[in-house]
Nucleic acid binder design. Structure first.
Length: 106
DNA sequence: CTGTTGACTGTCG
DNA sequence: GCGACAGCCAACA
């Protein structure tokens, strides 16, 4: 596996537990720089089927990437399907469902 | 090869 | 508390 920042994003996102969500910055920070959150978004832009990009949201718990999915409510539906409460395109109880690779994965 | 854009976040004013 | 700027790296025109 190539240790590129890009590739790391795929691996981290793939290991996100069910019923948990994380943020672009959390992944970017785990990889080295929180400022690399943009790269996380760009990486997810490739959005391989193996990567549950719907579990990756912004720091505010807002489903910023919902527009990039096949539909608009698809991302929300997937999150709710995993038991995550989503309302107005944002995750409720975010801190309760938040999964930080720097802490959980460690 | 150079410039712009992009699913973000943190800091400064 | 809100607005604007900077930083990170890769892909596309």
């Amino acid at each position: 596996m190539e240790d590129n920042f890009f590739n790391k994003v795929y691996e981290v996102v793939r290991i996100i537990p069910i019923g948990r969500v994380t943020s672009y910055g959390a992944i970017g920070k785990y990889l080295g720089s929180a400022k690399s959150a943009r790269m996380v978004g760009w990486a997810l832009n490739k959005c391989p089927n193996d990567v549950p990009a719907h579990r990756v949201i912004n720091r505010n718990g807002l489903l910023t990437g919902k527009a990039h999915f096949n539909g608009i409510n698809l991302m929300q539906q997937l999150l709710e399907n995993e038991g995550i409460v989503v309302e107005e395109n944002k995750v409720i109880h975010l801190e309760n469902n938040f999964w930080d690779p720097s802490k959980e994965l460690l």
